[in-house]
Design a protein around this nucleic acid. Sequence first.
RNA 1: CGGGGCGUAGCGCAGGUGGUAGCGCGUGUGGUUCGGGACCAUAAGGUCGCAGGUUCGAGUCCUGUCGCCCCGACCA
Length: 573
Amino acid sequence: MRLSNLFMPTLREVPAEAEIPSHQLMLRAALMRKLASGIYNYLPLGLRVLRKIEEIVREEMNREGAQEILCSALLPSELWKESGRWEVFGPEMFKLLDRNGREFCLGPTHEEIFTDIIRNEVKSYKDMPLNLYQIQTKYRDERRPRFGVMRCREFTMKDAYSFDTSWEGLDESFNKMYRAYCRIFDRCGLDYKAVEADTGAMGGTGSMEFMVKSDIGEAEVVYCSSCDYAANIEKAPTFEVKVEAKEELKELQKVETPNVRTIEELVSFFNTTPQKFAKTLIYKADDKVVAVMVRGDRDVNETKVINYLKCINLELADAETVRKATGADIGFAGPIGIKVDELLIDYEVKYIENMIIGANETAYHMINANYGRDFEGTVGDFRNIAIGDKCPKCGAEIKINRGIEVGHIFKLGTKYSQAMGATFVDDKGEEKPIIMGCYGIGINRTMAAVIEQNHDEKGIIWPLSIAPFHVIVVPVVMKDELQVKVAEEIYNKLNEMGVETLIDDRDERAGVKFNDADLIGIPIRITVGKKIKDGIVEFKLRNSSEVKEIKVEEVYDEVLKVFKERNVKIKSC
RNA sequence: CGGGGCGUAGCGCAGGUGGUAGCGCGUGUGGUUCGGGACCAUAAGGUCGCAGGUUCGAGUCCUGUCGCCCCGACCA
């Protein structure tokens, strides 16, 4: 491709709307443009990268025996009503009516559709195991689209679904996907970790997320400094640590604390440490009101609370509900005399001696409260694990990082097959529900994650495997006939070899050309300049500052060497 | 959905106390340049997000509305 023809409107300045590097660079490097919040159009370079990632996904999925199909993005409501998710998804689903008033949605995911296909077509154990996947556009009306392509309302997802006759079969299908995912993200050049994840409302027996390490990630990943344990913070358990009583139990006392509400304010008011407090948070769990107590310096883990309560929705209660439960303004909730349906108490709170709690009376706290003597409730693991806690697996110190979730593999079990009657007849003639797994990869998000991990102040540094083009040939001065002639020769020959090559044949100054080449992140740059008189060109890799001067005829072997080193195959065109 | 911020030329921005819109980059043309986003000259390009209102007069003040960004809540 010639840059003089390529639709590549690069931006010199950073668009005001973009804050994180991947978003800024995707706009500046002309990969995409915004159409509306969370909705993007892809330009030639961006599309090429998306296609490359998709192709890697296809190769690795196919290698594990999965078969590609393509479902509609426009889906009738019936299937969703059957599974109960028409309501569960709620406003997050783009819903619409056809001319006859029938309800449809733009698919946010496709479990129901795949299950429907299978229940119609698969009847016997002989038809399984089966793994079907598609690469499809998904639509979710996110409450808050964020960070460009990281969380958007239209996105491309590879979703796969496995169908097995036994739980062992599901394990095998799951492991195959695990292997495929590792190879996919390896090939995309990502620094990632597979972590244990919560199975959530989906139920099921196992779930792993593929997390790309990044400060802008929305998830928190807990991992062990010593063993291979890694988990989403939602999932990582904490345990009861028995503490011997040291202090004498003092008398419970009410203390006036006017305008002292937050833990920080309380710490300075009482001149003590956050560990001496227990905070009581009031939640609405479906139609119940629930209080959760954790130590002053801890965070409630809402996933754990949801799982314990087996509720669908959990949200912090509004001021009105808090007043009703506590009889006080927000900031003074405590366990004694609180009117809630359930009081959940984190393990740690059980062992805080002579703790400070809210008094359920505006402007008052209680001091010297003790679990057992002054209040009781359901004790369990309801908090986030934190730095300083021990690894649940080996007991060593844990660490916490942020991560971008690019993939998720999930043992669904029989949730959908049971709800939708997808059954098969086993070898004894018995009818059983099909055992399912589902496996997703966010294609656009993977692209953004790669940029987050591979860029510098000049621009993107694409890995060879997913770069929009492999090589860019830069003739420095377009008026120099020899430079142009040799550049054209290199360009043509590389393309003939199947190397995807750009030539910057624009009549621009060298600086402009170099800067654009760096911005769009082409892995290999071949500069044809003054020294061409001696048959010398420059060979430079985007991820290195080293410039090699080589003979023209060596160019081809040098390029092939880079492909070999990076284990990328050239497709003959 | 709560909190905050922003909508002025393709992009980035400036436009005290109201007086008919400007700068840089980019774009067209002519010329000089040519190894890391050149220079000179010249030109084009704006419903000031939209709708009301106040006023002789609104980019500027008031009301409403739409859009976009950030934080939070939420996220099969």
